[in-house]
Design a protein around this nucleic acid. Sequence first.
DNA 1: ATCTATTGATTACACATGTAATCCAATCGG
DNA 2: CCGATTGGATTACATGTGTAATCAATAGAT
Lengths: 125, 125
Amino acid sequence: MVEVSNAELHVMQVLWRRSPQTAQEIVSELQQEFDWHEKTIKTMLNRLTQKQALSFTKQGRGYLYSPAISEQTYQQQASKSFVQRLFSGKVTPLVAHFAEKGDLSHKDIDELKTLIAQLEEKRHD
Amino acid sequence: MVEVSNAELHVMQVLWRRSPQTAQEIVSELQQEFDWHEKTIKTMLNRLTQKQALSFTKQGRGYLYSPAISEQTYQQQASKSFVQRLFSGKVTPLVAHFAEKGDLSHKDIDELKTLIAQLEEKRHD
DNA sequence: ATCTATTGATTACACATGTAATCCAATCGG
DNA sequence: CCGATTGGATTACATGTGTAATCAATAGAT
């Protein structure tokens, strides 16, 4: 599994939202949200390409960057390993924690309910 | 928030299961599962006490270690920050990923259903 | 009482990460 | 054409982590 660090994840997220983008575009977008130096972001771009989390094509002077792994895939792998580590692979206790702390809105609960209903549907096979 | 590393988490988990325990007991238990040198485990005990994730009381030659943070608390904090990072704080998409990959058993689905039902109950307040 | 084994403390060392600065080649403005 | 700028590559450096080895004090064994 490609290991993306905390800070690097923010870079990935920019490119998951829109790609391909030039370094300069990525830098601008990230600097709206984070107090990162341009050089810092370049370093992360470099490391991410080395890890093959990003790919790029040459465009004039520089590169056009794109994600080399999809957000879906990353989320799935990361979620699975997280839930494995903390909850022995069971996702329900995690949801329960959110519930206990009142971190679930009515909307969240409704969405979960819908999701569960769909799962119950599907399990008739 | 107390930051517990990956390897250190396994040490915490041993003490969450049973505490207090001596270093020797912890080492024995961990070595059943991991190929870690005694010295390695001692280092982790040391770092965890420095981080105040573990506390200890003197007992003869050595220490008796105990968790200084509860598993509940740790799980809650870690879950929240994980879901924040990857899913903007929404837990439903995470569950959906598990669902999609068929990583939810019938039992999991039933448990989730029960949990949701309880939440719906409670929201009449 | 002395030697030895054990325990926590300190030190070690490579790799990852956060956070840049510097270097070098290509490009753009004049 | 030439100097300034820009982009990626390389280097830097502190801190965290995985994985121990060494040190020093103490408790047992003889």
